[in-house]
Computed example of a mutant assay.
Amino acid sequence: MFIDRLDAGTKLAQALKDHPLVQKIALADRLVLSIPRGGVVIGKKISIQLNSRHDVILVKKLGAPFQSELAIGAIAETGQPFIDQSLVNQIRVDDSYLREEINRVRAKIAMYKTKFRQDKELNLAAHLTILVDDGMATGETMKAAIAWLQGQEKTHSKTYHLSPTTYLIVVPVAASNAATDIRALGVELVCLEESSDLTAIGQFYERFDQVTDEEVIKLLAKN
């Protein structure tokens, strides 16, 4: 149980300080990427403790019909959709809903890019990329972030120093199934609490208030 996101960030930063990958990579070659909005509070705390560069990676989940908290996929930074087709088929999501949800989330990401990064592209040059969120229920958002970064690695291999072995996926809490899925991608997961009966990320926090856009902007302004 965590008091709030700051408490979770402090505990994760402490765990990361002794991590072999963190210890062997120079400060200038570390990059902390947070998933807005809740992940930014935690990622900022980690970046301060590790003296590392910090930014946001703009990835947002696609919500299921009548159950927006259930992720049926996610949209990545450049608008690319990553769909959990088996879940879409299982709950019978129709094509028109999926198109509308993709367009809605793409618009949200475009807005975030303007608000949070002033429309600047993400600088991915790093030897160690630490991906941070405030928790993983299905893992779909994190999977999309990883897939997008790996795609950028292939496209910009001469510019970005990225490979699957240089990723650390960092969350305070995760559903056991989501944690297993992430590890199956060949990346390392640092997670303080794994639960087989997780129903909501907020159940692992005493305070889990919604993080506002304004709070994110203030945190990023301190980079």
Rank of each mutant, 00 (worst) to 15 (best):
L192C: 06
Y167L: 15
L219H: 03
Q118M: 11
L198H: 10
D133L: 06
E77Y: 10
D134P: 03
I102Q: 08
F208P: 00
G73W: 13
V41T: 12
V132R: 00
G139T: 07
Q203A: 10
L198Q: 09
Q23T: 09
L192G: 02
N123W: 08
R207D: 10
V41A: 02
E69W: 09
L98N: 06
L12N: 03
F208K: 01
L122T: 12
Q14S: 14
R37N: 13
A126K: 02
I146R: 05
L124M: 06
L33C: 04
L189H: 04
L21P: 01
P164S: 10
T114C: 01
I25P: 06
I201Y: 07
Y205Q: 01
I35D: 00
H127Q: 15
G43Y: 01
R106N: 15
Q203M: 13
P164Y: 04
A74S: 11
R99M: 13
E214S: 14
G63M: 06
Y167I: 07
F208H: 03
E215A: 12
R37F: 05
N89P: 05
K143D: 06
S47I: 00
Y205G: 04
L168Q: 10
N51I: 02
Q90K: 15
I182E: 12
L122C: 01
M1E: 09
Q210N: 08
L33A: 04
C191S: 13
P172F: 09
A107Y: 10
Q210H: 06
I109V: 15
I48W: 00
I130F: 03
A74F: 09
K120W: 01
G63N: 05
L219Q: 08
T129P: 00
D119T: 07
E206M: 09
R92W: 07
E153F: 08
R117T: 12
S47G: 01
A71W: 13
H54G: 00
G43Q: 05
T165S: 14
P65Y: 09
F66P: 02
L6Q: 08
M142H: 07
L27W: 08
S47V: 01
I109Q: 08
I57M: 03
K113F: 02
T10R: 14
H54R: 01
R30F: 03
T129Q: 12
K61E: 06
I146P: 06
G43S: 07
D7H: 14
L189R: 07
N123K: 13
